[in-house]
Design a protein around this nucleic acid. Structure first.
Lengths: 249, 249
DNA sequence: TCGAATTTGTGCGTATGTATC
DNA sequence: GGATACATACGCACAAATTCG
């Protein structure tokens, strides 16, 4: 005996075949009945093996048909500093990323005045409960939700200015907007983590109810060392890749 | 009826309690028997609900004891450009990241001459089968494997120079090593994706056999627009966070 | 120290619903 | 319509580890 449970041995076997392209995207996995016969196990074990692969977003089941290797062309999200070939784009642009992948971009947003919760206050280096502008964005690729963003800006910076309400700001980016009021962003940081999606994120992004892994980016823009905007960017981990282009000295 | 399967409803319920810290790290989930009673479901359903959370690395089961919310302090991997407070560190340093998290860093590496496979050739902008130096690194935090790196350098650049064999190069970084032979790296890109770990990665990183999500970084260094090194960096997705600090113009 | 109860891990068989072929 | 295939769900059994009196 190997010591490895049968369902994990089978899952590992199939996973290796998928990652080596022996089972290419779109290919059909053995049916449960075939696996029962080939591996000499019960239907339960076959189910658990497939469940492991589904939780990894490697395969998807289709009722009445079979289980198939997923084929998901990833969207590319590119973030960069000053090294930009084209003239004056924002540090990243959903429209550019989506267009490059052949998708039609779109977005919705809604803004409101609120106060900073403790975590946001730390990120913006302001006092808890200080007034902030909270804007929620939902980005669409071909009308399907692709990104979910919560952005906070200290009202101490933008209040009373023409850019207090970020109407249409998604098109030009935070850097250009802040520029209009003399706030010159010179640095940003992004913290990338993976975690399972929360309930509201699953709904907002129309993620599958199980195995929904999300990439979460905490981005903060700085002007002369002072944070001027911070955002949580939630994107489906299995539909995206992130690209960073950084200059070195 | 909700239309949502019972096991997903229960998993979502527990997930929400975990993400809201109602069930804090270390807390014990309801036992299968409790769930059967509380939700009025069979043991199978309780098992499937817990399996969903385990596949998301949110909880871990302990035989004979219960299922507990995981508490994993993440290592921070920080990449940055020229904006460095301390003097002359590499663009990233495993020793620094591990030390900051209170771990004792270590690494093993082994180098060999080989030829570029098609994918690597594209990334290095050289011809397929051109000679390259392949170096495998395994980084350890407190003797436990923490990162797995495959690095390729075109021998056309380093052959015959003092830094052809990257002995001890892990300590100083590629940028400083290349500097010794007059190759001045001025830019790097990183492509970040998530996927399930392959069999050899599971072994090398001592990952669990199920639910092993890996963060994969494809990094390429450039000197005057010419790629001089590229690497695949595989790190356990649930034990890390990535930080990018980028200057904007 | 011992043993019984508890709890998870693995695995079997079966039943029903629903979608596909 | 019938066969096939997955999705969900029930019940059961035994092993292995822990907990606790």
């Amino acid at each position: 005996m190997t010591g490895i449970p049968a369902y994990l041995r089978i899952a590992g076997d199939l996973r290796a075949r998928i990652l080596s392209s022996d089972l290419a995207p779109g290919a059909k996995l053995p049916t449960e009945s075939q696996m029962m016969r080939d591996y000499g196990v019960s239907r339960t074990v076959a189910k658990w093996a497939v469940a492991v692969l589904k939780s990894e977003s490697l395969v998807e089941g289709r009722r009445g048909s079979g289980v198939y290797v997923r084929d998901v062309p990833r969207l590319v999200r590119e973030a960069h500093g000053r090294h930009m070939r084209t003239a004056d784009g924002p540090t990243w642009s959903f429209a550019r990323d989506a267009g490059r992948a052949g998708h039609r971009p779109g977005w919705e947003h809604q803004s409101e005045h609120t106060t900073a919760d403790p975590a946001v206050a730390v990120r913006l280096a302001i006092e808890p409960d200080a007034p902030v502008m909270l804007t929620r964005y939902r980005y669409l690729a071909d009308d399907a939700p692709a990104q979910f963003v919560r952005s906070w800006e200290p009202l101490a910076i933008t209040s009373g200015t023409p850019i207090e309400w970020p109407e249409g700001g998604a098109a030009v980016g935070v850097v250009a907007r802040m520029d209009h009021i003399g706030v010159h962003i010179d640095e940003f940081t992004e913290r990338v983590t993976t975690r399972s999606a929360a309930a509201d994120e699953i709904e907002a992004l129309q993620l599958p109810l199980r195995g929904a892994h999300a990439l979460v980016i905490e981005r903060t823009y700085f002007a002369a060392g002072i944070p001027v905007e911070t955002a949580d960017i939630v994107i489906p981990g299995d539909r995206y890749e992130l690209v960073y282009r950084v200059q070195v000295d």
